[in-house]
Design a protein around this nucleic acid. Sequence first.
DNA 1: TGACAATAGTCGTTTAGACAACTATAATCG
DNA 2: CGATTATAGTTGTCTAAACGACTATTGTCA
Lengths: 150, 150
Amino acid sequence: MNSRTKPPAPLEDQTFVALLKAADSLASQGDQLMKSNGLTSAQYNVLRILRGAGPDGLPCNAIGERMISRDPDMTRLLDRMEKRELITRERQQQDRRVVKARITSEGLKLLKKMDTPIRELHKRQFAHMSSAHLKTLLDLLTELAAHAPE
Amino acid sequence: MNSRTKPPAPLEDQTFVALLKAADSLASQGDQLMKSNGLTSAQYNVLRILRGAGPDGLPCNAIGERMISRDPDMTRLLDRMEKRELITRERQQQDRRVVKARITSEGLKLLKKMDTPIRELHKRQFAHMSSAHLKTLLDLLTELAAHAPE
DNA sequence: TGACAATAGTCGTTTAGACAACTATAATCG
DNA sequence: CGATTATAGTTGTCTAAACGACTATTGTCA
C-alpha cells in the first residue's frame, strides 16, 4: 500500500541532476549573449583564454586544457576564428610541431565590448543569493572539481 | 607596481565558471557510461522520463520540458529511438495534433541494466563529500534553479 | 460561423561536434 | 646513429545540433 508514492531519489542522483540543470540554465543564458555578438560559447572561451595568455599566445592544446568543456576539434574551431580575424596562428620555428594562437586587436575589441554585459549577466544570475551562500557554493564546486579525474 | 598580478575575478564570475566546469566534468563521465550502452545522454534522459511517466506515455513537448537540457529537435531524437525500438509513438485521436511517446519493454530492459552502474557512478562522483556538504550543495543548486527564468 | 491565432509536431538546410586515421616533427634510448 | 615512441596538429567522414520555415489541427471570439 502507498504503492503510488515513489521513494525519493538518492541525494547524489538529485544533486547530479540539479547541477546539470543549473549549469544548463546559466550556460544557455550565456550562449544567447555570445550569440548576439556572433560567437559561440566555445569561441568566446578561446578568446578569453587568449586574452589571458597575453601577446605570447598559446599552443592549441594548451587552449583546450583551459577550456570549460574541451573541444575535440580545436583545429577547425580555430580555423573559423582565424577566418574571422579574431585570432592569428603561427607555426613555431623552435618546435615545428606546435602552432601558437594569438588574439588579434579585433578579437580584443569584441571581448571588451562583451565584458560589461557578461559581468552583469553573472551578477543577475546570482543576484538572489547572499554572498555567503555564493562563497559556499563556489567552495563546494571547487571541492568537486578537485576530485574529478585529471 | 605589482602590475603583474591580476585582480581576482568577481565571485559571480568564478562561480559561473566553476559550476559549468563541474557540470561538464560530471556529465562527460556520465556520457561515457551512456555511450558504452549505445545511448547519448539525451536519449537516456528521454528513456528515464518515459519510464517515470508510466504506460500512458507523454506528448513530445512534455518530454522536452522535463529534460535536463532541452533538445531543439525532439522529432528526430525520437525518430532515432523509435527506429531502435526503445520507444513507440502514436498520434492521439482526441487531439490529433499531439503524438504520445511510450517506452517499450526493450527500452525498460536497457534502462534497468544501466540503473546500478549509474547509481554507482554518482556515488563515486560525490564520494569525497560529506552528506552535510552534499545536502548544502543540493539546496544551493535548487535555490539557483528556482530563480532561473521559466 | 468564419477568420485569425495558438499549439503540436515535422522537415530542409546549414553548420558544428565526434571519432578515427593520418602527417609531420621531436625526443628517447639501445 | 637509427629505430621506436611520443607529441602536436590536421583531415575525412558520419552523425547530430541549430535554426527556421512549414503543415496540420484545434481554440477563440467578433
